[in-house]
Amino acid sequence: MTTTQTAAPAAAQAPAANAVLRVPPAAPAAAAAYFAASLAFHADVSDVASVLASGEDPGFLVIDSRSAESWDQGHIPGALHLPTAMIPTQAEKLLDKSVPVVTYCWGPGCNGGTRAALALAELGYQVKEMLGGIEYWIREGFEVETWEGRERRDADPLTAPVDSDNCGC
């Protein structure tokens, strides 16, 4: 008895696309547009901190969108406390539409800063969201303020450079 092997169909022979390339990367022009837009919508914790520490007018206002209890646990010095739920009734009393705002909430696992940014944008404010929220502010070793005063914790070496003020990015 002779057996004949036939070639497997091409689809069966081709290796499955890996998880990264299953959806191919965008064309360079589309990627550039996307990343440029992302920078228009987001601010980095280190960038916000360095501008605030410069002593000059930052040209923006930082807004903490968390609850009063969360605010009391610690917030960015100089930030305005404006919980997301209060934005519709309080924003126009507290903010100047000519001054951009940077919102934040807890951290990357929380979209409260995003919701606050959306609420402000819908009211006509120029807004960015601070990536990482208060979690990364603290993890990068920047000061927080409470009713007891200011405090600074050691930077987490997994999130911030230990021997430099600049991560190089």
Results as ranks from 00 to 15, higher is better:
10 A>L: 15
163 D>R: 13
169 C>D: 07
94 L>E: 02
151 E>A: 15
92 E>V: 00
6 T>E: 13
133 G>E: 00
107 G>L: 01
110 C>G: 05
63 I>A: 09
75 H>W: 02
72 D>F: 01
8 A>E: 01
108 P>I: 02
166 N>H: 14
136 Y>K: 04
9 P>K: 09
86 M>W: 05
157 P>E: 03
44 D>F: 02
106 W>T: 06
91 A>K: 03
32 A>Y: 08
89 T>H: 13
97 K>W: 10
112 G>Q: 03
148 E>N: 12
164 S>N: 10
130 M>D: 06
118 L>W: 06
91 A>I: 01
11 A>H: 01
96 D>E: 11
163 D>M: 12
51 V>K: 14
105 C>G: 09
143 E>N: 09
6 T>L: 10
102 V>Y: 00
131 L>Y: 08
90 Q>K: 13
160 A>N: 00
109 G>V: 04
45 V>W: 01
12 A>R: 07
104 Y>F: 15
64 D>S: 07
45 V>G: 03
79 A>T: 08
2 T>S: 13
25 P>F: 00
11 A>V: 03
113 G>S: 10
127 V>H: 08
62 V>R: 01
26 A>N: 11
88 P>R: 11
156 D>V: 04
114 T>W: 06
130 M>G: 03
41 F>T: 12
133 G>W: 02
162 V>E: 12
17 A>K: 04
145 E>L: 15
153 R>Y: 09
33 A>S: 15
8 A>V: 00
145 E>W: 08
43 A>N: 06
164 S>C: 07
3 T>E: 12
55 G>Q: 14
52 L>M: 12
13 Q>D: 10
89 T>L: 13
142 F>R: 08
162 V>R: 10
157 P>I: 01
34 Y>A: 14
160 A>K: 00
142 F>W: 10
18 N>L: 07
58 P>N: 13
89 T>F: 13
137 W>L: 08
98 S>R: 15
27 A>G: 12
132 G>L: 08
117 A>E: 00
73 Q>F: 12
17 A>M: 02
46 S>P: 14
11 A>N: 04
131 L>A: 14
55 G>M: 14
53 A>D: 15
100 P>L: 11
108 P>S: 10
